[in-house]
Write a protein that binds this DNA or RNA. Structure first.
Lengths: 345, 345
DNA sequence: CGGCATGGTCGAAGCGCTTCGACTGCCGCG
DNA sequence: CGCGGCAGTCGAAGCGCTTCGACCATGCCG
């Protein structure tokens, strides 16, 4: 046991160990890893081999300190009442997966910390950038965002998106598309079953925009309409349907923008003696999974959670590397026709 | 604009800035923050004041590098088929919230990276410890865990928990408790509506243990039983209920361990002409929210997501500070009687 | 054939923090 | 009255990495 330097002090392999093993300078190893300078092929392979055999992983803290980049992004995910958690998680998972593809890790922040949390993220250099979910029309986090030195991307649109980078499905257009589909089939009287009341009151963009699109399209096409929120428990859904059918005996078209309510809604229609699609056509705005798991499979506008998450990360990475980004990305809705819509009899 | 040192090079406040502002050495500031040496009250207040006015936040990377502690823990959250996402998120949120109380941030890992991801976490010193969710009886991640230098806590129990730190509700006992409650009311024929088949086949501990507890208790009490998985869509639930009632015409007690299925189950019972609790008593194993939102409010054994998450973090923090921890923490189930159980007629 | 880019590599200087040993008064005790 | 000890503070040495300028061969041009 000669005192040969202090090869593996703590079982921790450093860049120095790799450098020695490969017979090069530590800086060379660093350049191999980052690609920021040209390295001859022979040296590169040698270094990479050493890295693999020693199973070297750079120390994240050291890297962050020296390079001013943590390779971590924050995902700010408030879990507010009335939001459908499985859908939110689809976004989140997509963000994490995409981020890993860029060699970034994801730090999870819930709402509880509020503004102080954002400030802390910023100042501590724990993360390089932020992705915010569940954005409200007048979101308290937005003024803060501008103060921060770090770039951010919003999933969802606030009322005043100027200067921000936002991604989301074009919910206004989605509302229109649903109505247009029903109108195209010949329906003249349609209703929107929306998110729980709290979601609208809070000023959540996607809910309000869908309703606006729905109403505007219906007005343009001269349909009579009925639009309102809907709570999530089956009893409430049943009540809502009962009232609706009583008030609108000739209603034949329904748009539902509330994942949690899809099954209860179908049950309630059945309970009130309405067949889908023979008596009532139903269009949903939801992830595909929900739509085609239902019986009958629902004609729907897809909420492209995966694509939105991916886009958000892509945009953030562009901002981090100083590339230009579009001000906002509204993904166009696409309607898939399934078994729940048909012409009225 | 005299060249006075280089006060705020980059808009970034460092410990040096604080030290100067407070008229002390940087090490003193550090000790104020960490409390690792005694600092006089007067100095402390002065330093804290400077920190506040300068709005200083330590650089996470530098701290991690110097102290070998990142103040970040990893939350490994596979989202497997058949798991109820809102429940998982309850755990996750509780973990994040509790962690913040210990001044830790939470890094979110999904399953996709597999073992390599765990190794990377370990070697890069990005996180100090891990919390693993959705543990299977024979979980592939476990052998790896022992290799790592970092402590970990499991939410859920594998088949062989020796040497590991695990927390969870005692699902075996929960299964028993449900049966005992029904038997106590006088029911003689009971059934278990379980998680989707995939969950059992995968070897998920909580599902199997609940079933075992259910069956053992029923055997002990001499009840006839019928236990099996149940898929999540309403149609499948309805089918399941139909078969069950056909096969067991005198069935009067039902235990349901599957959040997604609670409402459809009640609907199916109604559809088959069974009133709850007059004809059939129902006990659920689920978070309280689900149980009392149902109609009628369900007698249930609570899944204490919040407490489990909190415990997991507490245990991890103890391990991180070298304090002893119990091998395993099985939380005792508690049954709350509501409106869905009654003696059979 | 001499000088000058140029590709490829090295060395050293930090990045901002923690921590360890050393130093300084000051109190209390013998 | 002197000295050991202790509370309180300082200075400096890293932690492991990136990056900048320097350096050294080549190969190429004039």
């Amino acid at each position: 046991m000669s005192a040969h330097k202090r090869e593996q002090r703590d079982g921790v392999i450093t860049i120095l160990d790799v450098a020695h093993h490969a017979g090069v300078a530590p800086s060379t190893v660093s350049y191999v890893l980052s690609g920021k300078r040209t390295i001859s092929a022979s040296t590169r392979t040698r270094v990479l081999a050493s890295i693999r055999t020693l199973n070297y992983h750079p120390h994240a803290g050291a890297r962050a300190l020296a390079s001013n980049r943590a390779n971590v992004i924050a995902l700010v995910l408030p879990l507010r009442a009335g939001m459908h958690v499985p859908v939110l998680m689809q976004f989140a998972v997509s963000v994490v997966t995409t981020a890993r593809g860029f060699d970034q890790d994801v730090l999870l922040m819930t709402a509880d910390e509020g503004p102080a949390g954002l400030r802390r993220m910023d100042a501590s250099a724990l993360v390089d950038g932020l992705i915010l979910m569940d954005v409200e029309l007048d979101d308290a986090r937005i003024p803060l965002l501008c103060d921060l030195d770090r770039p951010s991307v919003l999933i969802g649109f606030p009322a005043e998106p100027a200067g921000l980078t936002c991604v989301d499905l074009d919910f206004y257009r989605a509302g229109q598309v649903c109505v247009e589909h029903l109108a195209g089939l010949g329906h003249r009287e349609v209703a929107l079953i929306g998110a729980p009341r709290a979601v609208y009151e809070r000023g959540t963009g996607f809910a309000r925009r869908t309703m606006a699109g729905f109403l505007d399209a219906a007005a343009t096409l001269n349909l009579s309409t009925d639009a309102g929120p809907c709570e999530e428990d089956p009893a409430a859904v049943d009540r809502r349907v009962g009232e609706l059918l009583a008030r609108r005996p000739w209603l034949t078209g329904l748009v539902v923008h509330n994942e949690a309510v899809v099954d209860p809604l179908l049950a309630a229609l059945a309970a009130h003696g309405r067949r889908v699609p023979e008596d009532v056509s139903v269009v949903a705005i939801c992830p595909d999974g929900v739509a085609h798991r239902a019986t009958p499979a629902l004609t729907s506008v897809l909420i492209p959670a995966e694509e939105v998450g991916t886009q958000a990360v892509r945009l953030l990475m562009r901002k981090l590397t100083g590339q230009p980004v579009p001000d906002s990305s509204l993904l166009p809705p696409r309607l898939t026709v399934r078994d729940s819509t048909a012409p009225p009899v």
